[in-house]
Design a protein around this nucleic acid. Structure first.
Lengths: 290, 290
DNA sequence: GTGCATCATCGTGAAAAGCGATTGATTCTT
DNA sequence: AAGAATCAATCGCTTTTCACGATGATGCAC
């Protein structure tokens, strides 16, 4: 059976018009080229070159022309394949990342920027979804605030402690005892994901705040605090940056922090882009925590 | 370096989801498949499959998907190549034939018909050219009335004897002595190719006919005879069929007959189509002479 | 844990690919 | 006409590759 190697030799012979020169060009010996062409002629079922003898160049036969035409096409495709692998390994590829709001606002921008710097041609696609049950099908990586199924591997990025966000002066500076939350009018995220865990934690201790408004939007949440609707019980990172119009209070004892993970399907071999993204997310999280 | 065989194995593994089943399908052993994939993974520079272990099917990696996509394309092209060779060997191909008027009118129609019957899909192209110096570049075969250069091989098809064509009754029936041509008003083909040889033959014997009209067209030639302009000195085959309005007279002694050859470039390996055409031409010529 | 299915690895033998030298054929030069 | 030059085919040999079978390792199901 013929192989790509034979076709490359065929093309070289056709180009050079000589077995010996083709051998020279390819780093073979003349005898090797003879044998390779012989293999091709056997599988093709007839001679591919006319050999006039002496210093005259060999000439392709009609059958040889057929094989050569297809052979060159195959070789071109093989080169394309090498290119494709090359470009893939260089990371010039695509990555699909699942995320949620806090990460989109804090961690992700930096990861994306660094990833784009390292791989200018890459195609990054983000999928934001607030849910209890993450769906990783079709995603290379997913940010999520919790561990999930067995078939999913994870890397813990950071702990995001819960704080009380209020207007300056509404509360005395410093940590606030947890039982002060009982009956307190609060705004918060919907009771899904980690928010549900936190509220369960409070309820178990007999602390029942009065949730007067829930929204997924961080900005809306903080705007409500500024407007005096109530304090916000939210993860630290939900408050984007230092803001003079808001005061952040730790709680004592601490609420269970929201843990932020990076997830992927177990056993998956990462593309270079995904591997790089994981590393960048790890570093960005370390910076954010430090 | 990878080869087509490796890519076929890769595709089989991807299809079957298992090294062992792929081996079974291809007639290899499992270990052989393992090694072939290992070769591919080495040249690609990374794993092509995730092996979950146990009875779970192996899963293609992103890199593997790249290689697989290109690999399938290559395999498809390799099949195309096999088809192309197959069809070529079956004769479903192209042939370029040079010819000249007499052959176009007598020998060739039959050859073409038989060739088309045997190879319905074939592409036959004819190139008619009246010249002393045939140019075979780009032609598979050429009909010609003479041998030429050394670099050209030939097959003699038949002798075409020269005859005198006249109106019935202009000459007594039977052979005409050659010296009767001296001074005779004649119509003839232009003095090229074999016509030149014949006229040289006459001149060498002191016989100088009076050429009153020359034309390349056979029909015009015969029309002039019918019109009484003169007799025609022409090869027998130039007179297409028995024609009551014309009488054919042999000459004595005979003029050197026009020899009709089939030519091709020396050392050329014929396509199946060309080989068949040569055989058909040989047979048609034998019929015509017999 | 035990049994089953699966892939990797290793050692072995066979096949092939490649090399170097030689041969035989053909062309070019003198 | 003779010799030189060019070139592909061939032969014997070495190295590499290929494929196999056996064994081991791993994960899953019961």
């Amino acid at each position: 059976m013929y192989e790509l190697r034979h076709l490359a030799t065929l093309a070289a012979v056709a180009d050079e018009g000589s077995f010996g020169r083709a051998a020279n060009r390819l780093g073979y010996t003349q005898s090797s080229v003879s044998q390779q062409i012989a293999v091709l002629e056997k599988t093709a079922g007839g001679p591919l070159f006319d050999r006039p003898g002496g210093p005259k160049p060999v000439r392709i036969t009609p059958l040889g022309a057929v094989v050569l035409r297809h052979g060159r096409e195959l070789l071109r495709r093989a080169d394309d394949m090498r290119d494709g692998i090359e470009r893939f390994r260089a990371g010039d590829s695509r990555i699909d990342i699942g995320t949620f709001q806090t990460v989109s606002n804090t961690l992700l921008p930096r990861v994306i920027r660094d990833l784009r710097d390292a791989h200018p041609g890459c195609d990054i696609r983000l999928f934001e979804e607030e849910t209890d049950d993450p769906d990783l099908t079709g995603l290379d990586l997913m940010f999520f605030d919790g561990r999930t199924a067995d078939s999913i591997e994870d890397l813990k990025l950071l702990d995001d402690p819960y704080v009380l966000v209020a207007r300056p002066g509404d509360f005395p500076a410093g940590p606030i005892p947890l039982d002060k939350l009982d009956g307190l009018p609060l705004v918060a995220h919907p009771a899904i994901c980690h928010q549900a865990v936190v509220e369960g934690f409070l309820n178990a201790r007999g602390i029942h705040p009065q949730f007067v408004f829930r929204t997924e939007g961080n900005e809306a949440l903080l705007a409500m605090v500024r407007a005096g609707l109530g304090a916000a019980l939210a993860p630290r990172l939900a408050v984007l940056r230092d803001d003079e119009s808001l005061a952040l209070h730790e709680l004592t004892p601490e609420l269970p922090p929201r843990e932020i993970f990076l997830l992927w399907l177990a056993g998956r071999t990462h593309s270079p882009l995904a591997a790089h993204a994981i590393e960048l997310a790890r570093r960005a999280a370390a910076d954010l925590a430090g």
